[in-house]
Amino acid sequence: MKRQPLLHPGLNLGSTDEYSHDVSEPIIFGFWVFLMADLVLFAILFATYASMSVQGQAGGPTPIDVFDLPSAFIETMLLLTSSITFGMASLALKYKADSLHLVFWLVLTFCLGAGFIGMELRDFWVMIQQGAVPQRSGFLSSFFLLVATHGIHVTAGLFWMLVLLLQLRVFGRTTEVKLRLMRLALFWHMLDIVWVCIFTFVYLFGVAQ
């Protein structure tokens, strides 16, 4: 294929490291495609939630009864901040020769992500205590599926981060590891966007009604 002067945002390869640039092209592109497929999945979960959140309440708890908006807000902040810290990690990957900065930002991201998951689990627990279990109504079923699917994604991202931290240690900053970090970054930012939608459409709209 003719080499187009097309650089990947975030990786300063191109002229400096042609090999990495070439291998990265299909890999990063393929990952974007994967993210798209994953977003279709979320889109369907949103649609399901939209159709059940009001009509599927079955006389059970309504969104206002069970949503803890302050808690969801803190979760949002945690996750948004973690996106910034991952952004810093990407910059460190790009500009810093040592791994120290990179590892620092990654660990910080991990902590924020873990904090998010912890808060979310606490929310779930409180809801379950109140009897707002997914078995109670269609609304709650779709709520738990949507939010937990996002949560499972974040958890997977955390595991992935651990594996990559280990790989940074074992292999150093090889092209493979860099590319994996870039993919994790894309994944992480996508989850952030999904969460913003959840916070808006599920929590804010839910409480506004």
Binding site: G56, A58, G60, P134, Q135, R136, G138, S141, S142, L145
Partner: peptide, 17 residues
């Protein structure tokens, strides 16, 4: 989830559709 965990996505009762 409906079958294993008693969710209500597609059931007749409790808001399933």
């Amino acid at each position: 989830l409906d079958r294993y965990a008693g969710f209500h996505f597609f059931t007749n009762d409790l808001g399933g559709n």
